[in-house]
Amino acid sequence: MSLFRPFAPILAIAASTSLAWGHEFWIDPEDYTLAPGDTLTAAIRVGENFKGSSYAYIPDNFRRFDLAQGDDVAPVEGRIGDRPALSTTVDEDGLAIVVHVTRDYDLTYSSYDSFVNFVTHKDAEWVIDAHADAGQEGVAPKEIYSRHAKSLVAVGEGAGQDRAFGLVTEIVALENPYTGDTGDGIDVQVFYQSEPRGDAQVEIFDRDPDGEVTVSTVTTDAEGVATVPVTAGHSYLVDAVVLRRPGDDVAEETGAAWESLWASLTFAVPE
């Protein structure tokens, strides 16, 4: 059975695939700070500017959906169709980390310009030259993509530390936003194939208590580290996108010329 399927209705992020590339994917907890024994409820969202639709718990649409606290990592259990996708009791005091990896999806850009706009927005202009060098200048390509999302939630005091979970690409918070000194921002590290990803663009979506969102970007250093400026009482979505050529077998099976791998991390900074 092929692993690469067209958009399923349950996760179709836009009626027109020309819009699909501009949509982020993130885990959106109902509350980022809980007491032991509370229910951790979180939606899986797709949208723009930290606003989007909630999607259901559909095991066929993800490769991994875990909840980690300390050394314990367990699959998120749910019923098909549950919305929000995550609702579970958290009994242990400490930092809870939600990890979600989607299956592969594919899209065909509606125009060459939309492709150029996307790779330019993601600071990957080299892709335009590589596309032209392959004799495809002016051609709207087919792409496969997957999402690699994490979220940090404080239970009780929220003590603990984010870490890498072996995702093909992921963002790791090097400081705990619930217990650390956030006056100089939160350092994050971007990984790709378990190696720090230097000179990578990180997009920051900052949502204030009134729901207003501001967007900015920073670039990682040689060690894949960047500082996210933060404000108490705000919540954050940070993401970074890898663009690469798919493997020969994948390209042959899907007809895709490019692959994008999206990493995201959500957290809040207490008042």
Rank of each mutant, 00 (worst) to 15 (best):
A20W: 05
D129M: 01
G37Q: 08
N176T: 03
I44F: 00
H121T: 14
F165T: 09
I44E: 00
E77C: 05
Y112K: 11
I204V: 11
D60Y: 04
A35I: 03
D239L: 13
L174R: 04
T108R: 15
V225R: 10
D239P: 05
E77W: 01
R103N: 06
S16E: 14
D93I: 08
A132H: 12
F65G: 06
V230E: 06
P84H: 03
G198K: 00
P246A: 01
F65E: 03
A85Y: 01
A15S: 08
G94Q: 11
S151L: 07
G180D: 13
I10C: 09
V242G: 03
Y109R: 05
R147W: 06
T169L: 07
K142E: 08
V168L: 08
Y57M: 00
A263N: 08
H234Q: 06
G81D: 00
Y55T: 12
P209M: 02
E157K: 12
F267I: 04
V213G: 02
I13P: 02
T214K: 10
R103G: 05
D129R: 07
S2H: 08
A68H: 07
V73W: 10
I186F: 05
T217S: 14
D66L: 15
A35T: 13
R5D: 13
A173G: 01
H148M: 07
G81W: 01
Y55V: 15
S114D: 15
V228M: 14
D91M: 13
T227D: 05
P6H: 06
F65T: 00
D82C: 11
F115K: 07
Y57C: 00
G138M: 05
Y145I: 06
S53Q: 14
E170Y: 11
G138F: 02
N117C: 06
D123H: 09
G37S: 04
V242A: 05
W21K: 08
